[in-house]
Design a protein around this nucleic acid. Structure first.
Lengths: 145, 145
DNA sequence: ATCATAAAGGATAAAAGTATCCTTTATTAT
DNA sequence: ATAATAAAGGATACTTTTATCCTTTATGAT
């Protein structure tokens, strides 16, 4: 459903939100460790997320990744769009370049419901809410030690 | 959602069913052409589907791929399982190896509904029905010429 | 000013997914 | 029996995804 890169991205963004709740910026290395992802690769992913304005970054000592007011309406869907593109949400799920109501593929009308569910899953909770759930222990971003 | 290989597989299986409705076996080359897939690659995919008993095959002149009574309860879900494995249906969607009701990832409870929709999409219609829809022109497997 | 820190960016590599080609095996038609 | 046909299987190649490492740029602390 999500690429491995996108799974890392989702976890990274939630972790950044969690730390930003406490006003902390976090480095790529720390993020990688907290979400069980290779840190150099995590850094690459974060570059994309910064470019797409899903999170913010600051260089130098005391620098790191963070979110502020300007990111408050971003959702997991924006993360997925930034990393995996729109293939989960748009286009023919069987790869037809001509697929429409008039010329539907066998899954055309069914995929609509699935996509609507996916959309809901990725937009119904704010990233802040998701971060709070991790913060209070009701969900986790990695296996517990 | 589906790998490219799986998209080919889905279309191939529906096409085989469609031709089997008329008692025709079909070759890998013809299938490739009908579904806009490279035929050598299509042949490889069909090998897997045959091994998994999703379709049948017969060598030699008059040979080809077909389905009969023994395949009647196979669904698109079996095609997806044969090609992409169970990752759409099982396991943590964020890649955690420990993810459960007790230790849920942030998407754990939402993904259940999505998966239930996907399951429905891939099992509610028989492959025969899907083939009939292609047969009567209400759905298509490739762009029309 | 200098040094330490951390993100950004570039080059490269390993692994997985996608694709092609050629040989072998099974089956049918002659 | 022989030749033709079509799937099965093996080897190989190309592309994309995943991953690592090293250099450069920006910033803060001393």
């Amino acid at each position: 459903m999500f690429s491995k890169t996108c799974q890392y991205a989702i976890k990274a963004v939630i972790y950044i939100h969690k730390q930003s709740l406490e006003g902390k910026k976090v480095g790529a290395k720390e993020i990688g460790q907290e979400i069980d992802a290779p840190d150099a690769f995590t850094a690459k992913i974060l570059q994309v997320l910064v470019r797409q304005h899903v999170v913010g970054s600051f260089k130098g000592p005391t620098g790191g990744f963070y979110v502020d007011k300007s990111h408050e309406f971003k959702t997991l869907k924006d993360v997925v769009l930034a990393i995996d593109g729109d293939q989960l949400f748009q286009g023919c799920s069987l790869g037809l370049n001509q697929c429409s109501e008039q010329n539907p593929c066998p899954l055309h009308f069914e995929i609509v419901k699935v996509r609507s569910n996916i959309h809901y899953m990725l937009t119904s909770k704010s990233l802040k809410q998701l971060a709070e759930e991790v913060g209070d222990g009701s969900t986790v971003l990695a296996r517990l030690a």
